[in-house]
């Protein structure tokens, strides 16, 4: 079986732009970018973007598939929506960044160790299983994502925060055993499974 990435490389051989338009959320907007640069100065974590959004749009058009999809730039997006309200062409930049990150992750070529990618996966798995966030199990998984030793270190660093939240009744130490998710988990799981199936089919990934 060929993997999803090879499949897509073959399908869109000559045009990364076409691939983005077809498979990335709101990707059909990329063409509308006029390279004014307003968005590039809008990201709160700006210095950490190797390629700001403006540059990413240019690279998509230039067919730099590998560089774009393996970049950790999109993973620096804080969803602050500065860019969206400022872009003179009204590109939904935030969603395109999310879409690119999701697509790269789906193809298995997003940067493996990027902490936001790993957090996002843990987060989604947390809510997809019970329908609601369990803040305690979520934080524990997060602390221990780099292994036991670093998890304990991080746990200790965050102990003040955790204790403060427990003391003020804002973190449930019993979250490990009792947690109120949605009642209809069966329906929720079936719905999510269906949604993923449809999405994969539409993108030719199924």
């Amino acid at each position: 079986m060929t993997d999803a990435n090879t499949l897509m490389v073959e399908k869109y051989r000559n045009s990364f732009l076409k691939e983005v338009e077809a498979n990335v959320e709101e990707g059909d907007w990329v063409r509308m970018c006029m390279q004014c640069g307003v968005c590039a100065g809008s990201c709160p974590l700006g210095p950490h973007w190797a390629h700001p959004p403006q540059e990413i749009f240019m690279m998509i058009r230039a067919g730099k598939r590998e560089e774009v999809l393996t970049s950790d730039s999109m993973w620096m997006c804080t969803s602050c929506y500065n860019c969206i309200v400022r872009c003179p062409r009204e590109l939904p930049i935030t969603h395109i960044m999310h879409g690119l990150a999701n697509y790269a992750h789906r193809l298995g070529i997003a940067p493996k160790m990027n902490p936001t990618r790993r957090f996002a996966k843990i987060f989604w798995d947390n809510i997809a299983s019970s329908g609601r966030v369990n803040e305690l199990t979520l934080s524990i998984k997060l602390y221990f994502m780099d292994g036991i030793a670093s998890g304990i270190k991080k746990g200790l660093e965050m102990m003040g925060v955790g204790l403060g939240l427990v003391k003020t009744g804002r973190l449930n130490p019993l979250g490990l055993i009792s947690h109120s998710g949605v009642k209809d988990t069966k329906g929720l799981h079936a719905m999510l499974k269906k949604a993923k199936e449809i999405e994969d089919k539409r993108k030719g990934l199924a």
Binding site: T78, S79, G99, N102, A120, R132, A195, I198
Partner: peptide, 21 residues
């Protein structure tokens, strides 16, 4: 029986349609 909205980080694993669902 409301569920989580997926928050602003749900996109990466959740994708488009599951999130909107």
């Amino acid at each position: 029986d409301w569920n989580c909205c997926g928050a602003s980080i749900g996109y990466a694993e959740g994708g488009e349609l599951p999130r909107h669902a």
